[in-house]
Design a protein around this nucleic acid. Structure first.
Lengths: 150, 150
DNA sequence: CTAGGTGCAAAAGGTTTGCGGTTAA
DNA sequence: TTAACCGCAAACCTTTTGCACCTAG
């Protein structure tokens, strides 16, 4: 059964005290179609294309709101700027050290809660981030082995 | 067989072009005995007790050097200040959302490389961070269930 | 109408950098 | 001797905040 693109947003926003503003809808729509894990600044730059008056502060505020609502997730890569991800499934991330792209990684469901914690500890969230070389970069490295000289 | 506390430091520092300065040794010694995952500022404050003239910039530079040498590891918790960890074994971290302490978590060796990556991807590092409630806080919460009102 | 949201600019906070003087090897 | 390092202060960059105006409901 097909679900309208904005149902989740509409349900969540209208369900609370939050207002359905053009800025929020615009940022959410943008992010929902995005698989590149943009930073707040990148979201801002893209948002301005369709809404030139939007401010960076509003983008930050909106992203914070969407995260608080559970409509998008944050991705942290070391101390780099926070990235945002519309994939609400349980997953981890892989960062390519060559091209800097971030990929979603499925976490086998059966593994997700199998951390060997000391007794009495309770997990509420987890964040798994892997670093390495992605398939594309590994391939081009074979064809062009000196491409990383710096 | 017993190994002197500073062999790893001495071998690593003397093995390269790096100088064995009092500041580096002081910061390393401090960190080596530390299980609390201090931030750079916390390292700085503790370092000043034994070496009042040391500067924050030197602490940052030293920590960067020690990380580059593999003598300490960085721990990233969302966008909070970077923490530093002398535990070189493969492990993850658990952050208590109540007391903010960071705990080392053993990663079962057999699990460490079992991520289901797309073909062609190669992992060089991984960082596993869990959040939740530690045993101490869970216990005091039972005895004092209203303690989290804010 | 009005509480919540927006845009702007300034501030905050962690980290990095430039530079002149210092020091380990 | 000299390249690496130190301490200081300024710069950087992401993110947050204060405030006057605006607007969805």
């Amino acid at each position: 059964m097909k679900v309208s693109r904005q149902d989740h947003y509409t349900d969540t926003i209208r369900g609370g005290v939050l207002r359905d503003t053009p800025q929020r809808r615009h940022v959410y729509d943008l992010l929902r179609d995005e698989h590149s894990h943009p930073t707040a600044t990148e979201v801002f730059l893209r948002a301005k294309k369709g809404m030139p008056s939007i401010s960076l502060a509003t983008v930050y505020n909106t992203l914070e709101t969407l995260v608080a609502c559970g409509l998008v997730k944050q991705v942290h890569v070391d101390r780099e700027p926070t990235r945002f991800c519309p994939n609400l499934e349980e997953h981890g991330h892989f960062v390519c050290e060559h091209c800097s792209r971030v990929f979603d990684i499925d976490l086998a469901a059966e593994r997700s809660q199998q951390w060997s914690l000391p007794a009495g500890f309770t997990i509420t969230h987890h964040e798994i981030s892997l670093r390495g070389i992605c398939a594309d970069c590994a391939k081009s490295e074979i064809q062009n082995p000196k491409s990383e000289i710096r």
